[in-house]
């Protein structure tokens, strides 16, 4: 018995569809400067942190580190703390991030000046 025709027919091309991988989110300057990034950190630093001051240096620093860690976890949950810090530190060398950084400093400078004037 012969094989049926339709089984032997292999001329027809089978199209292979490549599935695109879902892109892995990156911790880049866009994410860093987005609302969840630096602006949130600025907000936290102004409002939320309460230090206990003299004599409690180490617990204060622990608090500070905890704040950073939680902020980083919100921003980019994928990375461990020190990995995330290393990535951000590297981003800080980019031209536009540097510009933003000096802008932030100048902003607070001028606001500090205003504050002292009003006093």
């Amino acid at each position: 018995p012969r094989l049926p025709e339709d089984l032997v027919n292999i001329d027809e091309q089978v199209e292979i569809k490549k599935k695109k991988r879902a892109p892995i989110p990156k911790l880049d300057e866009i994410r860093l400067t987005s609302a969840a990034g630096i602006p949130t950190l600025q907000r936290i630093s102004k409002s939320r942190i309460k230090f206990r001051g003299k004599g409690h240096e180490f617990s204060d620093v622990a608090l500070l580190l905890g704040t950073y860690q939680l902020w980083l976890h919100e921003l980019y949950p994928r990375a461990k703390f020190h990995d995330g810090l290393a990535i951000i530190e590297k981003l800080g060398h980019k031209k536009n991030v540097q510009r933003l950084r000096s802008d932030w400093i100048n902003e607070s400078k001028s606001s500090a000046n205003l504050g002292s004037d009003s006093n």
Binding site: I44, E89, G92, W104
Partner: peptide, 23 residues
């Protein structure tokens, strides 16, 4: 750390700068 805490309290902008190497 004492210096740092004091500095951060006076100038909250240091919180952001602490992430980076300084310019």
């Amino acid at each position: 750390f004492k210096r740092m805490i004091k500095r951060v309290q006076e100038h909250p902008e240091l919180m952001v700068e602490m992430l980076f190497s300084k310019i």
